[in-house]
Design a protein around this nucleic acid. Structure first.
Lengths: 167, 167
DNA sequence: GTCAGATCGTTACGAATCGTAACGATTCAC
DNA sequence: GTGAATCGTTACGATTCGTAACGATCTGAC
């Protein structure tokens, strides 16, 4: 089903399209496709995309409180609880009580978590490569640069992205 | 919350990133952002993205059966029912009984639907323009071309895209 | 001509997910 | 020392979606 359109006139007949689909539609179309493909890949590691995102966030900024992570990721704190529980049960992340403020749960990645993170990085590279199979190295660099400029101008926080859905 | 990662090493410290985020992560990040922004815009027309997608699909290929549309859009037929109902109540689309096969409901867009579709196209152009504000015309064309090549190579059906979520 | 099987749209139901709001525990301001 | 504020957690409601059954209609074999 469609979701984020903004596509062009739709070229009712098979005729020659004028401008074709706009960048925005292509972006959301490819973005959804990329998200699904990535979800499939990390599914082999028994991870969902939200779990992966949280793991990366914890690794990137260790010792953060759940509240801080929630605001950074743009999610309600209640959602983090279940996520941290899941990762905690698998020994990938641990909650450390802060002696100075016993309300806070400082989150840290474990060695098992770091190990898994390296595999995730591999999967990410494979994913990236498969997605850009149509482009050579120079074109990929050009694409990255253009996308990065848009992301900057649109005020997107690097490394975090607006939530999609569950898996 | 994160969803489709595949981002690079995450550059734990503020140091100089090597390659930075991969294209796949940027794509899904920007794709989600674009989808949400577009949903906001057409929300002003009291439309959800799925409704918009269906309206465009009906306009692009009038007379299709719901079953045909369902397979084309990659959605279960039961989902189309509610969507068509919603659009039908507003007089944007109508179900015409096929006399030759009274099981089929041929879907057609009404004049009100076409009128709204033109406003949607305007919104889409504005959306596209706002999203690519960081790029000049030449760069936008380059971006579109690169994205289109990826979309083709990945086998994405033009004009339809993998479903995100509700609104 | 009729009867079994298939197809289409619809409805009913169950499962999953998410966000809001309340709840204890703890800390900070005064 | 007392009240307000903060953190993590839990409970609950609302929404959405897909699978599976259901009636209506058509097709084909006999």
């Amino acid at each position: 089903m469609e979701t984020a359109d903004g596509a062009a006139p739709a070229t009712p007949r098979g005729a020659a399209p004028g401008p074709g689909p706009g960048s925005a539609f292509l972006l959301s179309q490819l973005g959804a496709h990329a998200a699904m493909a990535f979800a499939d890949r990390i599914g082999a590691l028994d991870l969902t995309p939200p779990q992966t995102g949280l793991l990366r966030a914890v690794a990137a900024a260790p010792g953060q409180s759940q509240q801080a992570l929630a605001t950074m990721l743009g999610t309600p704190p209640s959602r983090l609880v279940a996520l941290v529980d899941q990762l905690g049960e698998r020994g990938l992340v641990e909650r450390r009580r802060n002696p100075a403020d016993r309300r806070l749960h400082a989150l840290h990645i474990t060695s098992a978590g770091e190990k898994l993170l390296r595999r995730i990085a591999d999967v990410g590279r494979e994913h990236d490569d498969a997605l850009c199979a149509a482009l050579d190295d120079g074109e990929r660099a050009t694409l990255r640069a253009l996308l990065q400029r848009i992301a900057d101008e649109q005020g997107l926080t690097p490394g975090v992205h607006p939530g999609y859905r569950k898996v």
